[in-house]
C-alpha cells in the first residue's frame, strides 16, 4: 500500500479511469453546466478543490473512523468543504456563483468525490490521497472544460466568453469569436447537446484506445511473423 505509483495515479485520473468519460460519474453537473467554458472551469475548479480537501481529510482520519460510520463522516467532510467553496465563490465570483446555482451545493452528492474518498483515500496515506484527489479532479475538470468548449463553440460560434465572471475584469476581452455572424445552434447548448457531445467524446476516446491497443498488438506480433517467414523459406528450399 505504501508504494503507490504516482505515474499510475496520473494516468488513471486523466485517461484510463477518467471519472467523467470512463467511470461516467458525476454526469449530472457534467451535463448541466458545460454550456460554456467559463461555467465548466468554475465547476471543474470547485470540484477539484473539494476532491483535494475531502481526500486529504479522509486520509487523515482513516484510522480513527470506524467502518460503520465512515460514509456519514465522509459526507460531512465533503459537505463542509463544499460549503467553504460556495462561500468563497459567493465572495469573489458572485455572477458565476449565480450561474452555477444549485450545481455548486450539489457537488456534495457528486459520486466522484465520495467514490474517491471511499475507494482510495480511506486506504492510502496522506500524500497519495491528496495527489489522487488532485488528479481525479483535474481529469474531471478537463473533460468538463473540453465539453464546455465544444458546446460553446458549436452553440454560439465563440470561445471563452464571459471569462471575467471568473477571472475578473482582466479577462473581459478574452472572448474569441471563431465564426462571425453565427446562427446560434441551440441544440448544443441545451441538455440534449450535452448528451450528444459527451457521447462523441467517449466514442473518440474509445477509438484512440482501440488504435493504441492495435498498435501494441502489432508490435507484439512482429517477431512471430519474422520467424514464420524464415520457416517457410526453409521448407521451400
Amino acid at each position: 500500500m505504501a508504494d503507490v505509483s504516482y505515474r499510475e495515479l496520473s494516468l488513471n485520473g486523466l485517461w484510463k479511469n477518467n471519472p467523467a468519460i470512463v467511470q461516467l460519474l458525476g454526469l449530472c453537473p457534467l451535463l448541466a453546466v458545460t454550456s460554456s467554458v467559463v461555467n465548466a472551469i468554475g465547476l471543474g475548479l470547485a470540484t477539484t478543490l473539494v476532491l483535494v480537501i475531502s481526500n486529504t481529510s479522509v486520509s487523515l482520519i482513516r484510522n480513527i473512523v470506524s467502518d460503520a460510520v465512515r460514509l456519514p463522516a465522509f459526507v460531512m467532510i465533503i459537505a463542509s468543504a463544499v460549503t467553504c467553496i460556495e462561500l468563497l465563490m459567493q465572495a469573489y465570483t458572485y455572477e458565476l456563483y449565480q450561474i452555477l446555482g444549485i450545481f455548486l451545493p450539489l457537488i456534495t452528492t457528486n459520486c466522484v468525490i465520495l467514490g474517491r474518498a471511499d475507494g482510495f483515500a480511506c486506504k492510502h496515506s496522506l500524500l497519495p490521497a491528496m495527489y489522487d484527489g488532485l488528479i481525479m479532479g483535474l481529469g474531471f475538470a478537463l473533460v468538463l472544460v473540453f465539453l464546455g468548449a465544444l458546446r460553446e463553440l458549436a452553440g454560439s460560434g465563440a470561445l471563452f466568453a464571459n471569462m471575467d465572471l471568473l477571472f475578473g475584469p482582466v479577462a473581459a476581452n478574452w472572448k474569441i469569436v471563431v465564426v462571425d455572424d453565427y446562427q446560434n445552434f441551440l441544440l448544443a447548448i441545451l441538455p440534449p447537446g450535452a448528451f450528444i457531445f459527451t457521447g462523441l467524446i467517449i466514442a473518440v476516446k474509445n477509438i484512440i484506445d482501440a488504435r493504441i491497443d492495435a498498435r501494441r498488438a502489432a508490435l507484439r506480433e512482429k517477431p512471430v511473423k519474422g520467424s514464420k517467414r524464415v520457416r517457410v523459406t526453409g521448407t521451400i528450399s
Binding site: 446562427q183 446560434n184 445552434f185 441551440l186 441544440l187 448544443a188 441545451l190
Partner: peptide, 10 residues
C-alpha cells in the same frame, strides 16, 4: 426536430 429546437426563428 434538431433544427426546430436549435433554430426556432428560421
Amino acid at each position: 426536430v434538431v433544427l426546430l429546437i436549435s433554430f426556432p426563428v428560421q
